[in-house]
Amino acid sequence: MQEILQYFFSGITNGAIYAVIAIGFSMLYNSTDLINFAHGEFVMLGALTMVTFSGPFHLPLLPAFIATVCCISIAGLLFERLAIRTVRFPEPIVLIIITVGASIFLRGIGMLAWGKDAYSIPPFSTHPPLDIAGAKLLAQSLWILLIVLLMVACLHFFFKKTLTGKAMEACAIDKRAAWIVGIPSKLMVMLAFGLSTGLGALSGVIISPITMCSYDMGTMLGLKGFCAAMLGGLGSLWGSLIGGFLLGILEALGVGFVSSGLKDATAFFLLLFILYARPGGIISALNVKRF
């Protein structure tokens, strides 16, 4: 029993990490209809920028945190302005390849700026791990959990209740129609990029006390986050949350009851079945366009 609970906690920890990245994917899709394959790299940039701010710059936790998120948001805005908006025929597949190119580019930048070594960030609080019936949960996992829930709630509020949020969603549904009713769609797309890369940086900062960070951490995290977002249903924030946790818990149970070598395979196998049963993800929010 204690073991099963511990597997579950392990799944929660990983799941929260996947979920927080998935939310970045989903949020961007929600407002621009685009998947940013460089999202994992923005997570990496966030984590490493945090290392610089809290290390050599000696900023305390909160200012360093805010500075990091701001910096990466600006990088996201620049990315949108320079690489995404300049495309003449913005077909999804073209934009995907651009983001793939951007991910390689950013990984290269990360390597040049921070070197090839891994770094660790101290956890937000030094509480001992939480003990529930003999199973342990790290304080940092709770931090991640808390921030993820807060993030989703805020985004939910933003998209459903504020004018800007509604305008952003309108752009994703039909850019032209949104333009006709007076929504500055270009601005909205730019804002969405800034927001989503900022979220990426935030995820990087909160997860790296657990995962460590290095210039090549983004690929795998981006991949898992993408899977979680797809699983939950692209564009649905709550879906991303569910998808992330489901993926994390499936992996942990795969380790516990199948084999640790096959844990990813087990998780992906079940994911495929879920996709076959519900071809739009668990919560299918928007109609997914074809290529």
Partner: peptide, 19 residues
């Protein structure tokens, strides 16, 4: 060391100008 940066840039530029 700059290989990755240049490679990524070329991919992006080709796609931006020759979509």
């Amino acid at each position: 060391e700059f290989e990755m940066v240049v490679y990524g840039l070329i991919l992006m530029i080709v796609m931006i100008f020759l979509p």
